[in-house]
């Protein structure tokens, strides 16, 4: 009995040490955000900053709160729109036994494989032609397109868990497919839908390159602001640190609250908790 307790304590210490390794770099940036630029680079290091020094945050936010707001709007909208498109499709691919559905699923996934770097210019040309540039709407559309393949795959894998008998029974009772989708499939796959939503949210939240080309002043998103702090004559480290901290809040919160869903999201739904 004692030996096993001892073993557990050792393992717990080890686990804490591992956790520290994965935490430390971010922690150091977090501490940096409460320091003046001199203190950020001081040697020997200022180990514990004065947490009442919030100048970096006030300066940074006064320059960027509209961008932050844009990021939130784009991210939330593209998450919703992605789900609106993807869930029915995933449902269809799972329950409609038509020929070529596997091929269709593979094709949908393959649209995600073009590197975003390569997609940027063609998309710019397309949106210029459609006269949709310079709007949050354009970003929502592009992010949705980038997200659909992933969202379809993950939600389909969750729909597959629904017993087919349940669907059959409702069909016999005369329920329409829409009814089954809304009243049976969606409620039964809440966990899966949450997974999809988190990942789509994070992707849109993190995206930089497309946003850089597609936005003008009012529609700029927060990552563009962060990247702008790195100019040639200087890197504005105070802003970088504060903005990195703010940018990391949503991913961290989502990880904390929904960590159970992460593994299934990362494996396109193949692995479930």
């Amino acid at each position: 009995m004692k030996a096993s307790v001892k073993k557990k304590v050792i393992l717990l210490v080890l686990a804490s040490f591992i956790t520290l390794i994965f935490l430390a770099p971010n922690l150091w940036m977090l501490f940096g955000s409460f320091k003046s630029q001199n203190a950020m680079f001081a040697l020997p290091p200022v180990w514990i900053p004065d947490f009442t020094y919030i100048k970096n945050f006030t300066i940074m936010l006064s320059q960027s709160y509209t961008y932050l707001l844009n990021s939130i709007i784009v991210t939330v909208c593209s998450t919703i729109v992605s789900l609106v498109f993807s869930l029915p499709t995933a449902f269809g691919l799972t329950f409609f036994k038509f020929k070529g559905r596997f091929f269709l699923a593979d094709w949908i996934l393959s649209t995600r494989m073009l590197p975003p770097v390569a997609a940027a210019v063609p998309l710019f040309i397309l949106f210029k032609y459609l006269n949709l540039l310079d709007s949050l709407f354009a970003l929502v559309i592009v992010y949705t397109a980038f997200n659909i393949p992933f969202a379809v795959w993950v939600s389909a894998s969750f729909f597959k868990k629904i017993p087919y008998d349940l669907i059959e029974a409702s069909r016999i009772e005369g329920a329409s497919w829409f009814h089954i989708f809304l009243k049976i499939a969606v409620p039964l796959s809440k966990g899966g839908i949450a997974t999809v939503a988190i990942f789509v949210f994070i992707f849109s939240w993190n995206e930089l390159l497309i946003a850089l080309f597609f936005t003008v002043s009012e529609s700029r998103t927060f990552p563009i602001f962060i990247s702008a702090q790195v100019s040639q004559a200087q890197i504005i480290w105070g802003n970088v640190a504060a903005a990195t901290v703010i940018q990391s809040i949503p991913p961290i919160l989502l990880t904390i609250f929904l960590q159970k869903n992460i593994v299934s999201g990362l494996t396109l739904g193949a692995v479930k908790n």
Partner: peptide, 21 residues
Amino acid sequence: GFGYDGLHEKQIVACSQNDGS
């Protein structure tokens, strides 16, 4: 304000498509 590379890319891409934003 933009970063150095970001500014250059954005200006050229926009202008090559006759963009006047």
